[in-house]
């Protein structure tokens, strides 16, 4: 359905925006390394079915490979700044102070409590869904702490938020047309979209109404 396709495209766009801007400006100002590392972990734990015989479609396969490869590539790209631009890298590390072990532990507990089957793959899948729902927090924390939003991070988070938002409509669509619902994905998806809702309001004020303001 259209919601899902545009959701996926918006997710692709967010990664494209991030990669393009980092590569072309050679700047990592305002980007949270922790959030990017968490996303790499999210895809590594979710797409393990690539190595099983679970085949969905060519589209699904190619997207999984792309998300997996691009998330790892972003982490590597950011790590290169450690030697390429130590000052910028150090500044990022100093601002990137969110305690992610709470997110990891919370997602692990949620994965152990809520899963479809008690198998390693299913628990890791569930862990990845819960982790994705909170993985943006270090980035949002960094934005609110620095009080200024780089256009890169603003557009990046907007595209990511749009992807989650469209997925909610995708689930409503699937519930109506296919009578299919994945409770774990839906609950975690709503949590994730709620995380972005405050950001959406800021984006609306800043970008759409053109107020060059600061983040509260």
């Amino acid at each position: 359905n259209l919601f899902r396709i545009f959701g996926d495209l918006s997710h692709l766009a967010s990664i494209g925006i991030l990669l393009h801007t980092v590569r072309s400006t050679q700047s990592i100002d305002g980007i949270s390394f922790k959030t990017q590392a968490l996303y790499a972990l999210v895809f590594m734990t979710r797409y393990l079915d690539l190595f099983t015989w679970h085949w969905v479609s060519l589209y699904n396969f190619l997207m999984k490979v792309f998300f997996l490869a691009s998330s790892v590539y972003i982490v590597v790209l950011l790590q290169q700044f450690r030697t390429k631009n130590p000052i910028a890298y150090k500044e990022m590390v100093l601002q990137d102070t969110f305690k992610i072990h709470f997110l990891l532990l919370g997602s692990l507990v949620a994965g152990l409590c809520f899963h479809h089957r008690f198998t390693l793959l299913e628990i890791l899948w569930s862990f990845s869904v819960w982790l994705e729902s909170v993985a943006i927090l270090p980035q949002l924390f960094m934005l609110s702490k620095s009080g200024r939003a780089q256009s890169l991070t603003v557009h990046y988070i907007f595209a990511l938020g749009l992807y989650r938002f469209l997925y909610i409509f995708n689930w409503i669509w699937r519930y109506v047309s296919e009578a299919r619902v994945d409770k774990i994905a839906v609950v975690a998806g709503i949590v994730q979209t709620a995380m972005y809702s405050d950001f959406f309001y800021i984006y609306y004020k800043k970008v759409i109404r053109g107020n060059a303001g600061n983040l509260p």
Binding site: E178, A179, R180
Partner: peptide
């Protein structure tokens, strides 16, 4: 009504 892992989404 189908509930459970299809895992056909990204």
């Amino acid at each position: 009504f189908v509930y459970g892992p299809g895992h056909d989404e990204l």
